[in-house]
């Protein structure tokens, strides 16, 4: 398991006060009893941990822990790509 997956699972485990080894990539939010408010609070923690900004409307499509990990990876990669792009000339 890569670092993004490990860190994401730690955040979810802390938010729900459950052991990390009970959470896997295919674990659903329903199984973890994570409601929409939990999702929002987790999203704030994830944003801080990875220095990313999650679009407000993105949370509705997240159903599993793997969805979170994939979403974070995409945002981290997009941020890295934006950071390495040549500066625009003015």
């Amino acid at each position: 398991m890569d670092d993004i997956a490990k860190r994401s699972i730690e955040i979810i485990a802390k938010a729900k006060n459950i052991p990390t080894d009970t959470i896997h990539l295919d674990t659903t939010f329903e199984e973890l009893n994570i409601d929409s408010l939990d999702k929002i609070n987790i999203s704030f923690e994830v944003e801080e941990a990875f220095s990313i900004e999650i679009p407000d409307e993105a949370l509705g499509s997240l159903k599993t822990v793997g969805d979170v990990v994939n979403g974070v990876k995409q945002l981290v990669e997009a941020k890295a790509a934006a950071g390495s792009a040549p500066a625009a000339t003015s």
Binding site: S36, L37, K39, I40, S43, D56, E57, L59, G60
Partner: peptide
């Protein structure tokens, strides 16, 4: 804003 964006 995040609650509003996720209430359908």
């Amino acid at each position: 804003t995040r609650l509003f964006a996720n209430c359908g």
